[in-house]
């Protein structure tokens, strides 16, 4: 069985990899390209731990084939911080104790960033529904929702 050659962009950098046709984008990111920030919690699109954006849309990378990434632009959690400076969401998650074990955190950060790009001032309910596909078993979500709100306020230039 022949592997497929894929050229794609991850966090702005052009990369290439070879993968079997059935390999998921998640496995390609983790095992071929070393972006292990995206996690496999279920492999069926039910937990959101593998969230990345593909051409600007939030997706579960476990439900995308690596081959589909040809010519695409992908953003992962590794692309959130710029240099040494954390994205306001990342800083807010640390400051507001929005993670316990941290396994769901990369997916939630990527998802929350996608939300704030569409809606810079979401209500609690909008955040909760947007993040409904990101399971967190540790926090009960409370501090996650608050951290997203605080980061959103900061990104709007308001002091929370």
């Amino acid at each position: 069985m022949k592997k497929i050659h894929v050229t794609t962009k991850v966090n702005g950098d052009e990369v290439e990899f070879l993968c079997p046709p059935e390999e998921t984008l998640l496995d390609a990111l983790r095992d071929r390209l070393g972006f292990s920030g995206a996690k496999e919690g279920c492999g069926t699109g039910d937990c959101g731990a593998c969230s990345v954006t593909l051409n600007g849309r939030l997706v579960c990378s476990c439900l995308v084939l690596g081959a589909e990434a040809e010519g695409a632009e992908i953003s992962t959690v590794e692309g959130l911080a710029h240099g040494g400076e954390l994205h306001p969401l990342q800083q807010s998650f640390i400051d507001n104790a929005a993670l316990q074990c941290g396994i769901c955190t990369p997916g939630i950060l990527v998802a929350a960033k996608a939300l704030l790009e569409r809606n810079p001032d979401p209500s609690d309910s909008e955040i909760r529904y947007w993040l409904a596909g990101n399971l967190c078993r540790c926090t009960g979500y409370d501090k996650i929702i608050k951290a997203v709100k605080i980061a959103a306020a900061e990104m709007r230039g308001e002091t929370a």
Binding site: G37, V77, E78, Q90, I94, A97, L99, L109
Partner: peptide
């Protein structure tokens, strides 16, 4: 205070079982 493993966990750097 801020947890010491925070940055690793928000940047995807923390290494879990499968990593």
């Amino acid at each position: 205070v801020k947890r010491p493993d925070g940055i690793d966990k928000v940047t995807g750097r923390a290494q879990y079982g499968a990593d």
